[in-house]
């Protein structure tokens, strides 16, 4: 069994989508516990690539293909996971109003998915009211806000306030090039991360 789990991890790190899917199916047929496949093979692989990305040893293209392979593997795995095991939690993610930068947010989505979260991506240039609506509709475990401009970043405290009016206990994570830990604290956010891999780590930490 260790062999197949290792092979799955390797296929993800190398971004081999078809191979990942095939190996996951093979493992399932061989009777390997689906949770084990997820937690002992797939997630550690994403963790590995994410960590290397953080250290500057891997670049965005490698992260993207690994995330795609992970997704492909999940397609095979998901139907076999019990309802409660499907994910670590739900995250609603969007870029704030006036801001059309999408790449950072999309990478955060990929890394969150890679860490086992379900993500609803509500896009870019998202009005504050739309964040509130999406929060109401999905009741996520975490709301993630991305901002790439020092001007649009000023929307963050506004969104946080509006969402907290809906649910005072809402967990909110923020990030984007101009955002700092200090700004996140001042805005009342629960978490900040400087990159996509750390974002996934932070989300796990927030949900304890």
């Amino acid at each position: 069994m260790r062999e197949i789990l290792e092979a799955i991890g390797k296929a993800i790190v190398e971004g081999e989508e078809e191979e990942t899917r095939r190996l996951v199916e093979e493992a399932l047929q061989g009777g390997v516990d689906p949770r084990k496949i997820l937690e002992d093979a797939m997630m550690p692989a994403m963790e590995d690539i994410g960590e290397r990305f953080s250290r500057g040893e891997a670049f965005i293209p490698e992260l993207i293909v690994a995330a795609e392979a992970m997704q492909r593997g999940m397609e095979a795995l998901k139907p076999r996971l019990a309802e409660g095991e499907r994910g670590r939690g739900l995250v609603v993610l969007g870029t704030v109003q006036g801001d059309i930068h999408s790449i950072g947010k999309n990478l955060v989505r990929m890394c969150l998915e890679g860490a086992g979260f379900e993500v609803v991506d509500i896009g870019e240039d998202v009005k504050t009211e739309r964040f509130v609506e999406a929060y109401r509709e999905h009741r996520p475990d975490i709301l993630g806000l991305s901002a790439l401009l020092s001007s649009t970043m000023q929307r963050i405290p506004e969104v946080i306030e509006a969402v907290r009016a809906e649910d005072s206990g809402a967990l909110i994570m923020v990030g984007g090039a101009p955002v700092t830990q200090e700004f996140a604290d001042r805005s009342g956010a629960d978490g900040y991360a400087p990159n996509a891999f750390e974002a996934a780590r932070k989300a796990k930490e927030l949900l304890g």
Partner: peptide, 12 residues
């Protein structure tokens, strides 16, 4: 229509 798509094809 997306930078991520191009970067994906960089590998693929």
């Amino acid at each position: 229509g997306s930078m991520e798509k191009l970067l994906y094809h960089y590998v693929k």
